[in-house]
């Protein structure tokens, strides 16, 4: 029991941190520009493919640097020459634009690497059990992911809260016009944030690819969860994104272990099972069975109870 608790906690945190790496860029872009970047998950996928390609030819370490850089640069250019022009036509155009980009990336990836996925593996340098948690060997690579993600959070948080550029970004989040009038180049800040966001998505792809299966379907699966994180955490809030990511990671992980259903509860309070079988299937559905959809339930509750999210400063 204790073993499972410890392992589940660790698993939940690592998954949560990976989510955070993706959600951090998304929430900043969303908070600042009011644009839901639908291509964010596709950039994550592209990051995984680039990571695979670069590690195959040069090595994992270069992939870790070049992959995110390439995506960051691509993201910045996309903002500068695409999104910025579309911006004047309103949010719907922007949304459609990012949607188009997501589609382009999807098709391009399928054209270049094929439709069945690629064998992107954990790099051999990190492919060993780091320590034993009770009886279970724990892979070094996952700990590496954890350390990297924590470092990213600390770095981002320090830049946003301590540096001058962070000050401007935070100001631009809430009062873009005022910041512009004070002489700061707000469009450039937007470009920077978009680039960094895309780069982080790319980084998440490069390190997430070997753990998950690198295939054209990987964007679709994660995209929905990401938006959930952003809304629960609050638009534009980095600590909110962190908390929401960890929350979702842990809730999902622990819910899977809970094989109890409403039926058990009804029996426990002493109602005869046959007489009380009024709910049909729902009565016998265990919490474990609905674990993967719990984040969406949390999203709904959050929207009803607190539309601005955990740490958000304004409503969705």
């Amino acid at each position: 029991m204790l073993e499972q608790l410890a392992i589940s906690t660790l698993n939940g945190i690592i998954y949560g941190m990976l989510l955070f790496m993706l959600a951090s860029g998304l929430t900043l872009i969303f908070g600042m520009m009011g644009v839901l970047n639908l291509a964010h998950a596709s950039m994550y996928m592209l990051g995984a493919y680039l990571g695979y390609q670069i590690s195959k030819t040069i090595g994992f370490l270069p992939a870790l640097i070049l992959g995110p850089l390439a995506l960051g640069l691509g993201g910045a250019l996309l903002e500068r020459y695409g999104l910025r022009r579309v911006h004047q036509h309103g949010h719907v155009s922007e949304l459609l634009f990012t949607f188009g980009v997501a589609f382009m990336i999807q098709e391009a990836v399928q054209m270049i690497w094929g439709r069945i996925g690629v064998p992107y593996r954990v790099p051999p340098e990190l492919d060993f059990p780091l320590f034993r948690l009770f009886d279970t060997p724990y892979p070094a690579y996952r700990i590496f992911v954890l350390v990297l993600a924590v470092a990213i959070f600390v770095g981002l948080f320090a830049i946003l809260s301590r540096s001058r550029i962070g000050l401007v970004i935070r100001a631009a989040l809430t009062h873009p016009n005022m910041v512009g009038m004070l002489g700061h180049n707000v469009p450039q800040v937007f470009m920077l944030v978009f680039g960094v966001g895309a780069g982080l998505a790319g980084l998440a792809g490069v390190i997430g690819g070997p753990i998950f299966v690198t295939s054209p379907n990987m964007a679709g699966a994660l995209g929905a969860i990401l938006f959930t994180v952003v809304v629960i955490g609050g638009l534009g809030s980095l600590p909110g994104a962190l908390l929401a990511s960890l929350l979702i990671g842990l809730v999902q992980t622990f819910a899977v272990v809970m094989d109890v259903s409403l039926d058990d509860f009804i029996k426990a309070i002493g109602v005869d099972a046959k007489a009380g079988n009024i709910l049909g299937d729902i009565q016998h559905t265990t919490i474990a069975q609905i674990a993967p959809i719990l984040p969406y339930l949390m999203l709904l509750v959050m929207l009803v109870v607190r539309p601005r999210g955990l740490f958000g400063s304004r409503d969705v």
Partner: peptide, 11 residues
Amino acid sequence: KVTDFTPYIAK
């Protein structure tokens, strides 16, 4: 719908 299978493996 499942994105992370580690909890199932632990289970």
